[in-house]
Computed example of a mutant assay.
Amino acid sequence: MRSVRPGTISAAFADASANAPDSRTRDMLVSLATALHDFVIKTQLSNDEWRAGIAALARAGETSGDARNEFSLLSDMLGISSLVNMISAQESATPSSVLGPFHQRRAPKLPNGGDLWKGQPGEVLVMTGGVFDAATGEPVAGATLDLWQNADNGLYAAQDSQQRGRNYHGILRTDAQGRYAFTTTRPVPYTVPTDGVAGEMLRLLGREAWRPAHLHVIVEAKGYHQIVTELFPDDDPWLDRDAAFAVREELVIHFERCSDKGAMPDWLEARDRLPPEFLTGSMKFYIAPKTRTLERPT
């Protein structure tokens, strides 16, 4: 490697990686290194700029922890998370969207029809719907929905010491007909954290930090591909200016105003405690089987 030059360093990296035990890992890392080499050459990156980039990555690591992942946030703001979701999507399944930096593992179990609202401030929302096989249209019993969202003050539980741990987080299972229901409050738009590297990047680019209101959902069932997605109310002012590039037309839903508690499922835990007027929303999730060809029924 005595004759490495800007035009030959990518080939040298590939040659040095020839004995990688896993070909997929080798291909990805060689492609990454080649793209980075091209970036350095195209931008004529200086030593000072390189050091600033390394320092930014170090700060992202320092900011990250159990309650927040700055690298995930940076990926969202760069559009990488959304791009990975789009190219990895299963045909005919409900589109994916970004995971976000505030998902918490080991969320409390929530009975189907359970209550995330718990009398907290905000517009009460009843969500109903079902999970279906994207190949056959048949309901999927026992599918899990991992749910989380922000509170009416715009903050997730991980950001807000005034909220109890894992507030507005819960995991429920669909019934024998693939149905689900739960009560919560309408999520609200918010700005992503701007005190870290991701926020610094937004400021450097003159970009807004707003995300439209959304409900996070991870849908899983044995024998099916997982879906990580978000649901967006159709009247949100930030739908077309999402800092994470995560909105998909199929994930935009309409909230109706309702005053008829009796029209809600009789297995809805908080049905009798609903206010005189509340919101309702509905979403059918289609999940892709791992072994069958997909063609969503009409």
Results as ranks from 00 to 15, higher is better:
Arg164Trp: 13
Gln90Met: 11
Arg271Cys: 07
Ile80Glu: 07
Val30Ala: 03
Leu73Met: 08
Ala209Lys: 03
Ile253Pro: 02
Ser259Gly: 12
Glu220Ile: 01
Trp50Ala: 15
Glu295Thr: 12
Asp242Cys: 15
Arg207Ser: 13
Asp22Glu: 13
Gln163Val: 00
Phe232Glu: 03
Gln104Ala: 12
Val217Asp: 03
Leu29Trp: 10
Leu74Lys: 01
Val247Cys: 06
Ala67Asn: 14
Leu36Thr: 09
Ala243Cys: 15
Gly79Tyr: 10
Leu32Trp: 13
Pro101Arg: 00
Gln159Lys: 09
Glu295Gln: 12
Ile80Lys: 04
Phe232Ser: 08
Gly206Ile: 05
Thr136Cys: 02
Val247Thr: 09
Leu116Pro: 03
Leu202Tyr: 05
Ala67Tyr: 08
Asp195Trp: 06
Tyr180Gln: 06
Pro276Asp: 15
Leu239His: 04
Phe245Val: 04
Thr194Asp: 11
Glu295His: 15
Tyr224Trp: 10
Gly199Pro: 04
Gly142Arg: 03
Leu73Lys: 01
Pro297His: 03
Phe13Cys: 01
Arg241Met: 09
Ser64Glu: 06
His214Leu: 06
Gly170Cys: 09
Leu74Tyr: 14
Glu249Val: 11
Tyr190Val: 03
Ala157Cys: 09
Arg166Pro: 03
Glu200Gly: 08
Leu205Ser: 09
Ala181Ile: 06
Pro21Ala: 10
Gly170Leu: 07
Asp27Thr: 09
Thr25Glu: 09
Tyr190Ala: 12
Glu91Tyr: 08
Asp234Leu: 11
Leu74Pro: 02
Ile218His: 10
Pro121Asn: 05
Arg24Tyr: 11
Tyr190Pro: 00
Arg248Tyr: 03
